[in-house]
Nucleic acid binder design. Structure first.
Lengths: 251, 251
DNA sequence: ATGACGCTTTGACATGAATCATGGCGCCGA
DNA sequence: TCGGCGCCATGATTCATGTCAAAGCGTCAT
């Protein structure tokens, strides 16, 4: 299934699918659209909007781009999970967000990417040339307004995360994290008490400012406290939303 | 000078100055304007723009608004320093930013304020009713674009801060902090090596995810390492930008 | 079926920063 | 000029989390 690793010729980090001219624009049936930057694009404009972008597929563990790369594209994720991260010279890294279906990537860049983006699972996305996307926005204030709204929401989330990283204990961090994932699941019409973890303990650690060992121990702690159960390592069942909320402090 | 504290009637957290009709709009001579949200407002519109806002003065230690208040206004700071913060139920708090001349307050709010804002020094600001400001933006995409740019910059800064809070040591945090203040001073045409600290050690701690004691000790450490000198508790002289950068890791 | 590999869990120990406690310094008002 | 108060510096000690190490478990390719 996966290509022979290490061969730069045979390996494709990202494949581009072409759209058949004449067939209806896939946007009209895109499940991610309602959550996405493209939500305010009217039906009449969809063809033009769609034509700006390429559909890409990225394998798990591949990077969409690296921190410091020239910022050439913006993305709208239609399937899979991506993490954004920043690193220090010695390898310590901070994951600044886990993104999935409907999420936009491309805010906060200047000329170069302020963070790297890596697929944690196989990912599908719409990729837009940054410049064309900006030109489109300049002509369509609705979309620009939507992006401002997205940026504003991101900023609020970033501030919550600062509170978490600066002032919360390990169990508060993990409890907050699980509750956020749960809220997110609810927003997508999934059950609140069953939380999938597409990322490893190490990645959770890099997001919460902890080590993977502390994440693991804390997970056990929450389990022993009766707040959660582990169906398997990647599937958390929230047993008591209340105790989890109490443990989390807030958010 | 300061009003008798504790009396809700005699005390004014914020005073509103009225503008004389007919006199030229103060915006044209406002030193903060070039850095501000109002930079793209054309001369011809300044009167209208100005008329939307009230000039306010806030004493040191007073709050512009509290976390959870209904979000009624947005602000543009014209003088002084403000800190934004979020708190946990038990009083732990995280300062998410120090703002000054030219900075905009009002991003990231929903119906209620996502954070509190407190004046660290006497502050002057332009205060706009949130709704009117949004209406103005809807009619003036330039201003909306500028706000998106501001939000984007804020987001990048927030991500830097997440890296700092999640992964940096105490001395890396403090070194990064001092370098940022220095960069900021440079952007305003002030000398790079002389950094004013309008906030207390405790506030620095609440910003860097440390205690005031650790901030104090670390300041001593940086001094003994020959990276900085303290003219007095509120004035840091950067002796060696290089060693400070080495200590900081990045940013 | 089996072995290998990657991820997770758990244990033992180390350590950076927090906490608790004390004294010093500087500023402001009487 | 003096006293008081808030902020800061520093020391002693504790503690949460990091680090190092080893073993368990699941998955996947052979």
């Amino acid at each position: 299934m996966s290509p022979p690793s290490g061969s730069p010729i045979a390996t494709r980090a990202c494949t581009v699918a072409r759209h058949m001219a004449g067939s209806p624009v896939p946007c009209s049936t895109c499940a991610a659209r309602q959550f996405s930057i493209c939500a305010p694009v009217p039906e009449s404009e969809l063809t033009e909007f769609f034509a700006m972008s390429a559909r890409i597929r990225v394998e798990a563990r591949r990077h969409l781009f690296n921190e410091g790369d020239p910022a050439q594209h913006v993305f709208n994720i239609t399937a899979g999970t991506v993490c954004l991260s920043k690193a220090l010279a010695d390898g310590r890294r901070q994951i600044t967000g886990f993104l999935s279906e409907g999420d936009f990537i491309g805010l906060a860049h200047g000329d170069s990417c302020a963070y790297g983006a890596e697929a944690l699972t196989p990912v599908e996305a719409c990729r837009f040339p940054r410049e064309r996307f900006e030109q489109y926005m300049a002509k369509h204030p609705d979309v620009e307004r939507r992006l401002l709204q997205i940026a504003s929401t991101e900023l609020a989330a970033a501030q919550d995360q600062m509170l978490l990283l600066g002032r919360k204990t390990a169990s508060e961090r993990l409890a907050s994290f699980l509750l956020r994932l749960s809220d997110r699941a609810v927003a997508r019409g999934e059950p609140a008490n069953l939380v999938a973890l597409p990322m490893t303990r190490s990645e959770i650690g890099d997001y919460l400012g902890l080590t993977l060992e502390t994440v693991s121990r804390t997970m056990t702690q929450l389990r022993k406290a009766g707040a959660i159960d582990l169906d398997n390592v990647n599937m958390v069942r929230i047993v008591s939303q209340d105790s989890l909320r109490r443990l989390a402090g807030t958010v």
